[in-house]
Simulated assay, not measured.
Amino acid sequence: MEDEGKSRALALIAGCEDPDKLKRMAANARRLGEAEIERAASLRLYTVLPSADPGTLEHDVWRSIHALEGALKDERGRTTLLGRTRQKIARDGERRTVADLVRGKPSDGFRMLMDRGMVDHTFEAVALRHQALFDDEVVARLRAAGADGRP
């Protein structure tokens, strides 16, 4: 794709709020071998899917869940929901779920997001962006692990 067309596509993606359009754009870009456009459409999709207000812990948690489910779908070729994580959120809420999961050893999902350059979509990054909501133990553990909280 020529640079002008790519720039137009990326600008359209950046302003798009429609999940169905973003899914179509990502699928079309994948079909055409346009990895940069596919990635941009997918990342934008993960941002517009959550129903919570942007900037909130809840929004960031669901953005992370959608990103990991998208990565799993790409890897496995079929939709894979994070059933246990979704159940834990329904039972304990987003804050407690994140705190409990970042206290444990790094998960396969964490590594998958890191390998795909989506560090800002990890629960660790979410916890550091919203560190005022977490106890000192969680924040100290993340800092000791070398996390800096920047996307």
Rank of each mutant, 00 (worst) to 15 (best):
A29V: 10
R30K: 02
R31A: 14
R31K: 12
L32M: 11
G33K: 04
G33N: 06
E34H: 06
E34Q: 10
I37E: 03
I37H: 03
E38Q: 09
R39W: 04
A40R: 02
A41V: 06
S42N: 07
S42V: 09
S42P: 01
L43R: 01
L43K: 00
R44T: 11
R44A: 14
Y46W: 13
L49V: 11
P50T: 11
S51C: 02
S51R: 03
D53V: 14
D53W: 00
P54I: 12
P54K: 12
G55P: 10
G55E: 07
T56H: 15
T56S: 15
E58H: 06
D60H: 06
V61C: 00
W62E: 04
W62R: 04
W62Y: 11
R63I: 01
R63E: 03
I65L: 09
I65V: 13
I65A: 05
H66I: 01
L68K: 14
L68I: 14
E69S: 09
E69A: 14
G70C: 13
A71Y: 12
K73H: 13
K73Q: 11
E75D: 07
R76H: 12
G77Q: 11
R78C: 11
L82S: 10
L82K: 06
G83R: 12
R84F: 11
R84V: 11
R86V: 04
R86S: 00
Q87V: 08
K88F: 05
I89F: 14
A90W: 09
R91T: 13
R91L: 08
D92R: 00
G93V: 01
G93F: 07
E94H: 09
V98C: 01
V98D: 00
A99V: 05
A99Q: 00
A99G: 00
A99H: 02
D100M: 11
L101M: 12
R103F: 08
R103M: 13
G104E: 15
G104H: 07
S107C: 02
G109K: 13
F110Y: 15
F110T: 13
R111Y: 06
R111V: 00
M112P: 01
M112F: 02
L113F: 10
L113P: 01
L113S: 03
L113H: 07
L113Y: 04
L113Q: 04
M114I: 10
M114Q: 12
M114C: 10
M114D: 08
R116V: 05
M118Y: 05
V119M: 11
V119H: 04
V119I: 09
D120S: 15
D120Y: 07
H121C: 14
H121V: 10
H121D: 09
T122E: 08
E124M: 06
A125C: 09
A125M: 00
A125T: 02
V126R: 09
A127I: 07
A127Y: 02
A127W: 07
L128Q: 02
L128I: 07
R129S: 08
H130E: 15
L133I: 03
D135V: 01
D136P: 13
E137H: 01
V139H: 08
A140C: 11
A140K: 12
R141S: 12
L142S: 12
L142T: 14
R143Y: 02
R143N: 08
R143Q: 14
A144I: 04
A144E: 00
G146W: 13
